[in-house]
Design a binder for these strands. Structure first.
Lengths: 230, 230
DNA sequence: TACCAAAGGTGCACTCCCTGCAAACTTGCA
DNA sequence: TGCAAGTTTGCAGGGAGTGCACCTTTGGTA
């Protein structure tokens, strides 16, 4: 959605065939239709990731992925909406809610870290296949274009995150004028996303397998304090 | 550089005709050749910006810009390398050096703010025509795709910025192991870029005319302190 | 002043991403 | 078994971006 096409406008144009979004495998009793879809999806994703891992993002064409995944290009676009889509997973719509949930769940941590953690868990949750998730990560981290899209992803939802934070401020009975709170919230969100980006880049793909969890987060916290201590 | 083309790889492929980069108007005594180039460049940029302001980014095609700017599409790409290029200005290569200079120049301010300020000045410096610069800004801010590219721009050069910061740490006679310093620097850069992004978004296009200078920066500083005070 | 080599601009053909549309094919179900 | 809804696919086409060969303009020179 960056370049071609006449009347585009963004991921919204991706009207996935079935109803329930992006499952990893297709729950057993969901009808042949749904299972087939999920399977096809999985095959294509796998093919795409392997291909890119092997040849690099821009030496892989959509046609290649389709050949390997045994679908027509048209179907590919029906599923993922764009070449990037197959690597970045479903567009934010679904994910934002997850972030909100995670954020509200832990009201103890300082805003910035609670937020960062929430974004993280949203980024990694609902991915049943750890190996696949890691491979995907590796691809995204290693491809500036995709990384950039990831960030865009975050940027698009900055507003919702800001609202989330403002709400928390309100819950903390803070009484500054709305504009003040919003400004502070915006900055907090910016910082949180920065933390996410940094941690994401720190963590090498050949890690222990899990995703950068509390450990990395604590470390980044130390760093922040150090930076601001002077 | 996001979508099309076979063997691309990035802005690098933009081999501008002349030598000296992107002047706004062409210094009087530079030879007819250079002056013409600069003039053509200016005309195209102006046309592009006006067009987008009027119709929105993705309702403007490169062909339209070329028609308005009176050059062939091929020439357009020779000049700017991509549709985005005409709005984002010259790719980082030139700009990074400017950031480095600005950063080194003020060693008094805390790292994060010195860095943010430096990026700002690099972003806006060397643009003789304030009105044009503002219009460009307006376009970029109002177009997610372009905004995302801006960020990519920053991301690509994060490493160089990190080195810059590490060097400063060294100058401050800090003795932590290299890895430590690098990690801290990376985080600092991340924060600085976050500040830049936030300030950029805060400042509305219909501002007083200048670019978000020290004022906004000071404000963001207050915010940061507030956020970390708890 | 006429001429020439280099620099720059263009047209052309082609690759690639992506979309709308309608035909063909599957599946779920009565 | 038959049909309606759900899916896949082919086709045609638009828009970005590139390599290449050719033509025009400049800058300088004899």
């Amino acid at each position: 959605m960056t370049t071609a096409g006449a009347g585009k406008g963004g991921n919204p144009g991706v009207e996935e065939p079935g109803a329930e979004g992006h499952d990893g495998e297709g729950h057993p009793g969901e009808g042949l239709r749904a299972r087939k879809r999920a399977a096809a999806r999985a095959v294509i994703e796998r093919a795409a990731i392997d291909l890119v891992l092997e040849r690099g993002y821009d030496r892989v064409t959509v046609d290649m992925i389709c050949a390997a995944g045994m679908v027509s290009p048209r179907t590919f676009f029906n599923y993922f909406g764009s070449k990037e889509g197959v690597f970045l997973g479903p567009p934010p719509a679904d994910a934002t809610e997850a972030v909100a949930r995670a954020f509200r769940a832990d009201s103890a941590a300082p805003v910035v870290f609670a937020l960062a953690k929430a974004v993280f868990s949203a980024l990694f949750e609902g991915q049943p296949d750890a190996e696949l998730a890691r491979a995907r990560m590796q691809v995204v981290m290693g491809t500036p274009e995709l990384l950039s899209k990831q960030n865009e992803w975050m940027a698009v939802h900055e507003n919702q995150l800001v609202n989330l934070v403002v709400t928390r401020y309100r819950d903390q009975l803070r009484t500054e004028p709305a504009a003040e709170l919003a400004a502070e919230a915006r900055m907090a969100v910016g910082l949180a996303l920065a933390v996410v980006r940094v941690v994401l880049q720190e963590s090498e793909p050949e890690d222990d397998g899990g995703w950068p969890g509390a450990a990395a987060m604590d470390r980044s916290r130390e760093l922040l304090e150090k930076i601001f201590a002077r």
